[in-house]
Structures are given as structure tokens and as C-alpha cells.
Simulated assay, not measured.
Amino acid sequence: MSIQSVDVLYTAVATAENGRDGRVSSDDGQLDVVVNPPKEMGGSGAGTNPEQLFAAGYSACFQGALGVVARKEKADISGSTVTAKVGIGKTPEGGFGLKVELVGSIPNVDADRAKDLLEKAHQVCPYSNATRGNIEVTLTVA
């Protein structure tokens, strides 16, 4: 697989302090959050965590890609939602890895059309393009 060439239009900048048990902030001040490991991983669960932040970014980006596809396909996606479920766990090699399920609810189209729109959005979404071939991503129609 070759590295994708990108003509950058915007660069997000965030800085973490103390890793998974600290704080993350953006250079423009729009994001400033406490991060803590979830209770399931031995943490306090008092703050957000990198997986929640990734799920938020992926779901928003994928919803945008769905909109691009819907306009092209002339599909009505009003009232639609995309939920990203990001799991983290141990890999057989001893490290940690991610697994994602994207759940799309598109009330104004039938299930087959919804699945087709999700698959096409998966080809357009920058997060999907970045993760393709690296982690398991499952598309589900709600």
C-alpha cells in the first residue's frame, strides 16, 4: 500500500501532558480536556480518554463523508446519525490495538440503500482512509 498524497488545507494541533492520565489541549484553545484511563483499564474514569476522542472525531468525519456521498447520490439523509464505537485491547503480539464499529442510522432510506451509502462514505472519509488496512472497521446499519 502506498502512502496517500494530501494537499493540506488545515492542520489541527493538540498537545498532551502526562499521556493517558493528564490533559490534552489544542493550540487554539477550543479543546482543553482532562484525560484519564477508563475504569475498565484500571483508571479513574474521571475524564475523557483517547478512545472517546477518536470516536468523536471519526463519527463526525464519517457523518460529513456520508453527506458528501448523499448529495452525489441524491439520497435523503436528514435525521441521520453515525455512532463510532472504538474498542481498545491487547494484540496477540503483546501491544495494544483498536477496533471500530460505525453504526449509521439513516431513517429516510431502506436498509440496503443505507448499507450502500455507508460503504461509499467509508471510501471517502479521511479517518476511514487513514485506518484502512490497519485496524478492523465494521459498518452497521441501525
Score class of each variant (00 low, 15 high):
1 M>F: 04
3 I>N: 12
4 Q>D: 15
5 S>I: 11
5 S>Y: 02
5 S>K: 13
6 V>T: 14
7 D>S: 14
7 D>N: 14
8 V>L: 05
10 Y>S: 01
12 A>E: 02
12 A>R: 03
13 V>C: 02
13 V>K: 13
14 A>R: 01
15 T>Y: 01
16 A>V: 12
17 E>N: 14
19 G>Q: 05
19 G>L: 09
22 G>V: 05
23 R>C: 00
23 R>P: 00
23 R>Y: 02
24 V>Q: 04
24 V>P: 01
25 S>G: 08
26 S>F: 00
29 G>S: 07
29 G>R: 05
30 Q>V: 04
30 Q>T: 08
30 Q>P: 00
32 D>P: 02
33 V>Y: 12
33 V>E: 12
34 V>W: 00
35 V>P: 01
36 N>W: 03
37 P>K: 12
37 P>F: 06
38 P>I: 10
39 K>R: 15
39 K>A: 15
40 E>A: 15
41 M>E: 06
43 G>V: 11
43 G>E: 10
43 G>R: 07
43 G>Y: 06
44 S>T: 15
45 G>V: 07
46 A>L: 06
47 G>A: 15
50 P>E: 06
51 E>P: 01
52 Q>H: 09
52 Q>V: 02
53 L>F: 05
55 A>V: 06
58 Y>R: 09
58 Y>C: 05
60 A>F: 03
60 A>N: 08
61 C>R: 07
61 C>M: 05
62 F>K: 01
65 A>S: 13
66 L>H: 05
67 G>I: 08
67 G>V: 04
68 V>P: 01
68 V>Q: 05
69 V>N: 03
70 A>D: 08
72 K>A: 15
72 K>V: 10
73 E>K: 15
75 A>I: 08
75 A>K: 12
79 G>R: 10
80 S>F: 02
80 S>E: 05
81 T>Q: 08
81 T>A: 15
81 T>R: 14
82 V>G: 09
83 T>D: 12
85 K>D: 10
87 G>D: 13
87 G>P: 00
88 I>N: 02
89 G>F: 04
89 G>S: 05
89 G>H: 01
89 G>R: 03
92 P>A: 04
93 E>L: 00
94 G>D: 03
94 G>V: 04
94 G>Q: 10
94 G>H: 09
96 F>T: 08
96 F>Q: 07
97 G>K: 00
98 L>D: 01
103 V>F: 07
103 V>I: 15
104 G>T: 09
105 S>F: 03
105 S>H: 12
106 I>S: 11
108 N>I: 14
109 V>C: 06
109 V>W: 00
109 V>M: 06
110 D>L: 10
110 D>G: 14
111 A>S: 14
112 D>S: 14
113 R>V: 14
114 A>D: 02
115 K>V: 09
117 L>Y: 03
119 E>R: 11
120 K>G: 05
120 K>N: 06
123 Q>E: 13
124 V>R: 08
125 C>Q: 06
126 P>M: 10
129 N>V: 03
132 R>E: 04
132 R>A: 14
133 G>C: 06
136 E>P: 00
136 E>H: 03
137 V>W: 03
137 V>T: 15
139 L>D: 10
139 L>S: 10
142 A>V: 13
142 A>C: 11
142 A>F: 09
